[in-house]
Design a protein around this nucleic acid. Sequence first.
DNA 1: GTGGTCTAGACCACA
DNA 2: GTGGTCTAGACCACA
Lengths: 125, 125, 125, 125
Amino acid sequence: MFILNPHSSVPIYQQLVDQVRRLVAGGQLQPGAELPSVREMALEHTVHPMTISKAYSLLESEGLLERQRGKPMRVAPLKKNQASTAARLKQLEPQIDALALSARQLELSAEEVIEQLKKKLREKP
Amino acid sequence: MFILNPHSSVPIYQQLVDQVRRLVAGGQLQPGAELPSVREMALEHTVHPMTISKAYSLLESEGLLERQRGKPMRVAPLKKNQASTAARLKQLEPQIDALALSARQLELSAEEVIEQLKKKLREKP
Amino acid sequence: MFILNPHSSVPIYQQLVDQVRRLVAGGQLQPGAELPSVREMALEHTVHPMTISKAYSLLESEGLLERQRGKPMRVAPLKKNQASTAARLKQLEPQIDALALSARQLELSAEEVIEQLKKKLREKP
Amino acid sequence: MFILNPHSSVPIYQQLVDQVRRLVAGGQLQPGAELPSVREMALEHTVHPMTISKAYSLLESEGLLERQRGKPMRVAPLKKNQASTAARLKQLEPQIDALALSARQLELSAEEVIEQLKKKLREKP
DNA sequence: GTGGTCTAGACCACA
DNA sequence: GTGGTCTAGACCACA
């Protein structure tokens, strides 16, 4: 469910935070859903447990996850979790902006980029 | 001509590298154009000369700038600066992949994302 | 394992870069092998950590080393380290050209030069 | 007669010094032969006159060239100028050593390198 | 004038 | 623990 890339320039804990935020916003992680334990996830991705822990803590202080004593963390009861389409697009904006900038720097036409993006969106990962 | 923000989380030398790349790609810095000397630019932005020097060195090893001994650095005559379209698309791939992943996690449809991207690509930055 | 000579006219960071390249090419540093940490090596050779760091960074941008966050750098899994024979010969070309020029200026015959080169190539360094 | 490459990592004055030494050793510059004036040579290679001047001065202090008031420099009357084959090979040694080292680092076989070198030696430049 | 190297040492992000 | 960034400032090579 989670994809962590240790070679990315984005810190691993940040990758995890971003993904949880999106999965909650998109409704794939419903309120009450339990997340893998720190250890489980650390093992699965061969990552330091502290890294997972840091991500969870950030998400907790943000109000998106909540800690349950002795049990794994779970998605908090919805406040404004599942966002409107507009709000979710807003969340995507920094990435879109960066892509647009890169494309222009590479002197690629809109068509070429969109063609490629369409292809990737069609593939289920 | 160059804007360096010491409070950004992007390292100063990286900001400079990015801007030179963009200005060259966009044609605002033509091959042969001279850049401000390390000391000049360091003074102007009250930054340590080594920080500027690091950026210039990276751009040189990238083949974008060339040293002229005793004179300031200048934009290299373009050779493979403009790679083939396929090669440039390849360079964009990681960003496109990441965007596609985010979009799926946000449960956004291809249309919504592409619509937004088109808008951004049309805006000249 | 590494020999750094502060009195050489070759910069210290360059000496290190050269040696790592050689050790990797020669197979003495296998993919996955860890290098001494920046601090370790700096202490051992009484050199400033930044000097070591510069060498490591260059080797990373070259694709020869890879960073493991929180752990020392290690030799990257070889990919295009071994390029085609033609490509590697191409890399040697400037040196071959320079040698040919020198030989002609010294009025040395092809045989004499090649004889000498053969001898050197046979010696394991 | 002289080839100066401003993009080489070898300083320009050093390139000139090396070439004069070789041409004298090889007998192509005979004792008494006049060299181009500093200005002439600087113009021809679009190089700073000081650079040529520095090379000439070094060669003079070495005893290879001599200054004649109001006239261009000329090759000094031979002492041990035209060297024996062995001596001339000795002069080539650093370049041969470097080439052999590079070849080994690139994992190229002796045959491949020698093949290439032969080709270059045959071409008159 | 130009850029390059190096040290001393602070401070930071990440795991 | 790991490496990265930055400054202050010395000293050098080259043109």
